[in-house]
Design a protein around this nucleic acid. Sequence first.
DNA 1: ATGTGTATAATTGTATACAATATCGGGGGC
DNA 2: GCCCCCGATATTGTATACAATTATACACAT
Lengths: 233, 233
Amino acid sequence: MAIGLSQRMDLGQLAKTLGQRSQTTPETVAAVLREAIAKGILRAGQPLRGEEIAQQMGVSRIPVREALRQLEVEGLVHYYPNRGAFVADLDTEQIREIYEIRMMLEVGALRRAVPRLGPAQLQRARHLLEATEAAEDGGEWGRLEVEFHEALYALEDRPRLARMIDNLLNIVDRYWHMHGLTLKHRAVFERDHRALWQACHDRDVERAVKLLEQHLERSANLLIGELEGRAVK
Amino acid sequence: MAIGLSQRMDLGQLAKTLGQRSQTTPETVAAVLREAIAKGILRAGQPLRGEEIAQQMGVSRIPVREALRQLEVEGLVHYYPNRGAFVADLDTEQIREIYEIRMMLEVGALRRAVPRLGPAQLQRARHLLEATEAAEDGGEWGRLEVEFHEALYALEDRPRLARMIDNLLNIVDRYWHMHGLTLKHRAVFERDHRALWQACHDRDVERAVKLLEQHLERSANLLIGELEGRAVK
DNA sequence: ATGTGTATAATTGTATACAATATCGGGGGC
DNA sequence: GCCCCCGATATTGTATACAATTATACACAT
């Protein structure tokens, strides 16, 4: 008997809520799986059986295969020929690498954005910052934190950069969700956010960059420390 | 009658030379198409008809679809639902963005690599530099130039970063190939390469970074200037 | 001429069916 | 006991067939 997906998970439901906006079937399937992986519903290393996913989403295996291939390029899924797809399971070294890349991209984005941040964008970021601090559960906190960061990066005219950053966030997200780590460390992060916002508001590019670097460095160390401390795999 | 692919192109041939190493069929198809797009055999904006590619490669449309979807995530192909795949056609703004991202990633990689470059790696880079200068045709020149750069970045233990840089190079490659631009400007680039190599050899991180930034900035401006000057498209 | 509607063809999208491959379990040898 | 081989089962890989959608061409009205 197949044991790939837990019974709790109901992908059909997720598909209903998410699926409307993204048009094509493979894109919908990919979006559902992305969400399920980021939220930790599908755990690292878990096999993703085509037939099972297809049945739960009410489609055939063809669009599922395409979705899985897409997720593989994005790095959320590992693919072994003739053996199928598995939720990507990162070791700490790979997580370290992702944070290094995030630092390059996000610092680059911030450096470019700070001089051109308008009052409206700063206000929006401020709003998101406060919303983050008011958030109750980890999922909402994480979602708002990402929005806050991306608001400061002003990526409207840099869609590819936006996608790349988003993609990297997606990959590490579930490791934060796993043991409720975001809420556990939210005090530290929220202090970082306030300082970062202030530096952007002051148009102090170098200070903002420095703060972001420290924030990401701290995040990486905290996450990796937690994972190694708990000896997660 | 289908007019998607030109008669000159023989994907079957390409498949033979490339296809052996990459195991799965979709991966092989993707590799062939990647190569054909980078080399400019498939031109920007050209439709990629599934049936035609399938026949030329001696497979069905299923693996072709998966390959196209993979290339779409990589950014080499654009996908329009129910209308099919087209070779991505970048405007100068998108090319500018890619160079901005390349600068972030490659500068980051170089900064990390310079202190840890061993004599063997420097020698290898030196060798590639000289091979580049001896290259006869644009394709070989480009291939060696990429190898030279990546040798200096020392990306053996950073596979994801390596893939991301490689991917961005792939996307802009064909614009260089289009009008033989690499050979036209090789003198400038080769001067840049020598200076960059020397800075790495001297372990002067900041000078190396500065030179790489200038090199990429110059490359972007040259390419975009040529494209706008000739009113390509 | 120009634009519009409609029939036809071309193409994409996906379900089904079957072939190829890998996994798992048990039986036999050592 | 331990290991290896082999059949049964599960799963992936892909070709084929058909449905859905889009593009094309032509007649017709304005």
